[in-house]
Each structure stands twice: as C-alpha cells, then as structure tokens.
C-alpha cells in the first residue's frame, strides 16, 4: 500500500512538472502559429551566432498588426508580463503599443527578455531573447539615442 502511495505521488509530481513546463511563455504560441505564414518574418538564432551579443537565444517575429494576430499578441503579452520582473511599456487605448519585459531566470542563471513594438507602418515586432546581456545594456541599446 505504501509503495502504491509512493507511485501515485511520483505520478502526481510528474504531472505537476509537466503542467509547470506547459505554463512557459505564451508568446511561444505566436512564433509557432504565425512564424511560417505568408506576410511574417521570423528569425531564430542561437548558440555561436548570437554569442557576440552576449545572448544564447534570439527569436523575433514581424508581421502586420491586424486581427487575429493582434488579439493573440495582446493576450499573450498580458499573460507573460504577469511574471515579469521589470516592465516598461506604452499603452494606448488599452492596447500595448510597445513593451519591454524582463522575466525571471527560471533557474537558468541568465536574463530573459520580451520586446514588443508596433511601428508606424502597423507592423508589429515581437522579440524573445535570453543570455548574459544585462538589462542596463539592453535598455541603453533600446531607449537611449546615440
């Protein structure tokens, strides 16, 4: 009986781990859903290719900001920013126009960021990146005019 209890406990733990993993960033669904569609540009870079930028993963997607992608993006950003450590964003008429989010490292000992912006040409760009890059360096690159 004790062994069965242990077994059921292990199964529950596995299910918990699986569900936690399933709760990873919602914006991943944007890359998966719209990345390979006509009108989208999706960049995937990792490893040596981005090491010079002190990053280990860089993913971006640029697409026309219109429904249903626009609604999905807003929903995903709103969900993911709940776990963000730092948030800088511009919201107009209740919608995120541009956003910078620093996420918790999830034990990976690296910084994770989500960047988002809707351009004047109504093109939305969503970026996910992770690596050693410090938030101050990123802010300098993003917001300080050279």
């Amino acid at each position: 009986m004790k062994r069965i209890g242990t077994f059921i406990f292990c199964c529950t733990m596995l299910l918990f781990v699986a569900s936690v993993q399933g709760q990873d960033l919602k914006i991943n669904s944007i890359f998966e859903k719209y990345g390979k569609l006509k009108g989208s540009t999706m960049v995937i870079l990792s490893g040596e290719a981005v090491r010079n930028y002190r990053l280990s993963v860089y993913r971006s997607i640029t697409l026309q900001y219109e429904a249903p992608a626009s609604d999905d993006m807003q929903q995903c950003l709103n969900a993911d920013k709940q776990q963000a450590r730092k948030i800088k964003e511009v919201i107009r008429n209740g919608a995120i126009r541009s956003g910078y989010y620093q996420l918790p490292d999830e034990g990976k000992k690296m910084n994770r960021y989500i960047l988002f912006k809707i351009g004047d040409d109504q093109q939305a760009t969503l970026i996910y990146m992770e690596g050693d890059l410090k938030s101050e360096e990123l802010i300098n690159k993003l917001f300080i005019r050279e």
Partner: peptide, 24 residues
C-alpha cells in the same frame, strides 16, 4: 539558425543575422 520569410526558410547565417538586426 534560420529566418522564415513568407513561409520560406533561409538558413544562410549572414541573411539570418541581417534580419535579426533589422527586427531589433
């Protein structure tokens, strides 16, 4: 490492980097 443009995949690293910089 790749860039998907209108559903077409390009793996040339120079092109991928250029698109990454553009998106940033």
């Amino acid at each position: 490492n790749s860039v998907w443009i209108n559903g077409e995949k390009i793996t040339h690293i120079g092109v991928v980097r250029a698109y990454a910089e553009t998106s940033f």
